[in-house]
Amino acid sequence: MTGFELARLGDADLELALRDLGRSLETRPPRVDLARAARLRLEAPAARSRWIASLGRRPVRRAVLIALAALLVLAGLAAALGFGLPGLRIIFVGETASPPVGSPFETLDLGRLVPLESLDAEARFDVLVPEGVGLDGPIAAVQDLRPGVRQASLVYPPTPRHPAGNVPSVGILITQLPGSIDEELVVKFIQRVTTFERVTVDGQPGYWIAGGLHAIGYLDADGEVVVDSIRLTGNVLAWNANGVTYRIEGARDLETARSIAAALR
C-alpha cells in the first residue's frame, strides 16, 4: 500500500494503520537505566556536599569549580551506571563548560611547569614519553590533584599531523595519573559525544571518545573525587595500565591516538 493509497483511507482505517505502526516501532535500548539514573541523581546532593568539603582542603581552581558545578552524578552513580570496565567508567551528564576556542595556554591549568628531565621526580612516578612519532619538545607540568596525588602532563605544540584545537599553542596533550585499577575508579563526564567506543590499548581496556568531552573526575579508594577539566575539546583516548590512568587528547583519529599510545616509553 503506497502513501497515496494510505491517504485515501477513512479515519478508522488510518487509525488502525497507525496502531499497527505503533506496535512495530522500537526505540534503541537506553544506554543506562533511566529510572535508576534519575533516582541516583536525586540522591546526589549528599555526595556533592562531600566533594565541596574535600575541595576546601586544597586550592580550588576555576576550571574545577565549573566542572564541579555541572556534575550531578557522583560515586554511587559511577558504581551503578558505569560501562563496566574495571577502573574506567563513563557517565553521561548535562551541560558542562569547556575552554572556548582560542583559549590561552594558561587556561589548561596543568599545574606548575617543570623541566622534562625532572618530571619523574616531581610527579613521583615514572612518566612515559612518546618516542618516534614526531612529537618533540613537550612542555612538562605537574599538578597536585589531591594531597599525595599528582598528575603529570606533556603538552606538545601543534604540527601538520597534530593541528591545534581550541588552544592555539597545543597540538597533543598527554596526561598521566597514578592509581591502581583495583583501587581507583575513573569517571568520565560526558556532555555529548559523536563517537564512543570501547577499545583496548596494548591489551588494556579503554575508551575512544570523539567530540564534546569536557570534564573528568577520578574517584579514589576513599570515594574522594578529583574533578578535572578536559582541556582540548575533541578526541580523547583514555585507558588504564600498570596502575596509571593515561589519556591522550587532541589526536585527530583513533589510529593516531593509538600510535602515540604505542610509542609511550
Binding site: 526505540t27 534503541r28 544506554r31 533511566l34 539514573a37 534519575a38 541523581r41 553521561f92 555529548r192
Partner: peptide
C-alpha cells in the same frame, strides 16, 4: 534523536521529582 530522547527522559524524571 535517540541520544536526545534518552537525555530528555532522564532530565524529565529528575524534574518530575
Amino acid at each position: 534523536d535517540a541520544d536526545e530522547a534518552e537525555d530528555a527522559v532522564q532530565e524529565a524524571f529528575v524534574k518530575a521529582h
